[in-house]
Simulated assay, not measured.
Amino acid sequence: MTLTFHALPTPSLLLDRARMRANIRRMARHIQALGPTLRPHVKTHKSRDVLADVKALSGNQGITVSTLQEARYFFEGGERDILYAVGMTPGKVGDAAALIHQGCRLKVITDNPAMAGLLDEAAGRHRVSLPVLIELDVDGHRSGADPESDMLVRLAQRIHQGSALTLEGVMTHAGGSYDLRSTDAIHAHAEQERALTVKAAARLKDAGLPCPVVSVGSTPTAVMARDMTGVTEVRPGVYTFFDLFQVGLGVAALEDIAVSVLTTVIGHQPDKGWVIVDAGWMAMSRDRGTAGQAVDQGYGLVCHENGTPQDDVIMGSANQEHGILMARDGTPRLDITRFPVGSRWRILPNHACATAGQYSGYHVLENKTITTRWPRTRGW
């Protein structure tokens, strides 16, 4: 399959394979040098074809998923070692049990004794031994058990003593790193993530409990980590593609971003300096995360069809199916003659996971040519 941009419908999701492979190699070398195993999170790409490149270039020993649909999809594609890294619920144990009975080494997580009890009961009904990791809160970002609390040990004991549960270890996601504004702060956050997770594991071992897995993960802290002593695995995800938010954090460069949305100019509003395109927030997602950073990228940064960023032009506003390209400062100074009706442009996304989630697959770009289309899974 060989297509030109102009043979594609718009909007379309493009994947620059060379950039993606460079990102994969860089992370693989970095984590290998630090010692742990790489267990990449597949929630960004949700594609067996992308994972094939990840495995070929980094040799990972397992994957992380955010939905049981992802787990089924990748299991059917040959993956066996899968961590479902969202708090487990009793209603999902049946689906998890079906995967385990088919040979999937699926692990789940929880952060409280009440849920551990419900999972134990549900796993017993489904006649499955359910491997469980304890989710830790290392930065107040979201969910997780306090790694320094008495409850942590009680939770571990409840899991270990369960008739249908096995205690596999501890894990965390240092999502607080997304709120930081300097690389020095992210370096420090990576060490905080490591130290608190390793401390939690040590507390469980001191209590006579098993803790073979010590798992950390977020792309910013994985990129900025300098020490992984005591950690067994790392679970970054968006590093395969990167995005404008990661650029704003200082953990990636514009030229690292591997995904973009191809769009067509459909009209102008000359008095306002607006260029109207056929990619709105349904094509880009509503994620405006860069609005809180030093550089607000609107709904995305505009690039020429050849991928060259137009640093003064962003998608500053969007409706469901219409995007409005404008000068970064919002004034009507944009020379709209640069953007003739019918011309094609590429938009770099704020959040690669959210933008990719709007599409059923990627048009893969290699050597300036669309060579194939890679499908991706969706749903829960």
Rank of each mutant, 00 (worst) to 15 (best):
T2E: 15
A7L: 01
H30K: 12
H30A: 05
L34Y: 15
G35K: 05
P36T: 00
T37A: 11
P40G: 09
T44L: 08
T44D: 09
H45F: 10
L51H: 08
S58I: 00
S66L: 07
Y73Q: 11
Y84C: 08
V86I: 13
T89H: 10
P90H: 11
V93T: 06
A96M: 04
R105Y: 13
V108C: 13
M115D: 10
A116Y: 06
L119C: 05
R125Y: 01
D137V: 01
R142G: 02
P147H: 11
V153S: 04
L155C: 11
A156E: 09
Q161A: 15
T166I: 01
T172Q: 05
Y178N: 14
D179I: 03
A188E: 12
R194S: 06
T197Q: 12
K199W: 11
K199E: 06
S215Y: 02
R226I: 08
R226S: 10
D227K: 09
M228N: 00
T229E: 15
P236V: 02
P236F: 05
G237Y: 01
Y239S: 00
Y239D: 07
Y239I: 04
E255N: 04
I266T: 15
Q269K: 15
A279L: 07
G280F: 07
M282T: 15
M282A: 10
M284G: 06
A294G: 03
G307Y: 05
Q320M: 12
Q320R: 12
D329S: 13
G342F: 12
S343A: 13
C353Q: 15
C353E: 12
S360M: 14
G361F: 01
H363G: 15
T372P: 06
T372Y: 12
W380I: 10
